[in-house]
């Protein structure tokens, strides 16, 4: 009796597991991450061109539950001795398909993937998530809020 119940228990569990294609979700998140980096570098083309700041890529290990650890790219912006990072927080995010945190000395801001693989900057998280499109103005506002005054 107990043996059959155990078998049924794991059969049901197994069926529930198999209906999510985690590899496809991960591929999608990593593609969205590359597209975010390209978008940011495009927005920063002028200051980079003038040599006012530098952009580098570093790799971190992200421990996302359900898919296990994977490598992802951190975009690092440097101005003199100050740096800000766009740190991947993973794809298991409530109400979004992925998240990146913009981390500076003075604080951090959130970016989330919205439907259509569009990235947005979180203006406020509660009582409901308010997201602004990522453009020159919102990026400038975010950088000002996390970098030294």
């Amino acid at each position: 009796m107990g043996k059959e119940q155990l078998q049924d228990f794991f059969r049901q569990k197994s069926q529930k597991q198999s209906d999510v294609n985690w590899q496809a979700r991960l591929d999608e998140y990593l593609r969205a991450l590359s597209s975010l980096h390209a978008e940011i570098l495009n927005l920063l083309a002028a200051p980079r061109g003038e040599g006012l700041m530098k952009a580098d890529a570093e790799t971190i290990r992200v421990n996302d539950k359900f898919v296990g650890p994977y490598d992802a790219t951190v975009l690092v912006l440097r101005v003199g001795d100050e740096r800000v990072e766009f740190v991947p927080k993973g794809m298991n995010i409530v109400g979004a398909a992925g998240r990146v945190d913009l981390v500076g000395e003075m604080g951090q801001r959130m970016l989330v993937v919205q439907p259509g693989a569009r990235w947005g900057l979180v203006a406020s998280r509660t009582p409901t998530l308010k997201v602004m499109p990522l453009d020159e103005d919102s990026l400038l506002d975010a950088l000002r809020s996390v970098m030294r005054q």
Partner: peptide, 22 residues
Amino acid sequence: RVIESIRRGTPAPYPSLDGLSL
């Protein structure tokens, strides 16, 4: 229910948790 919404990629049952990681 929140974790299931993350797994399924469906809207979360509590909007105040939107944006949170696991």
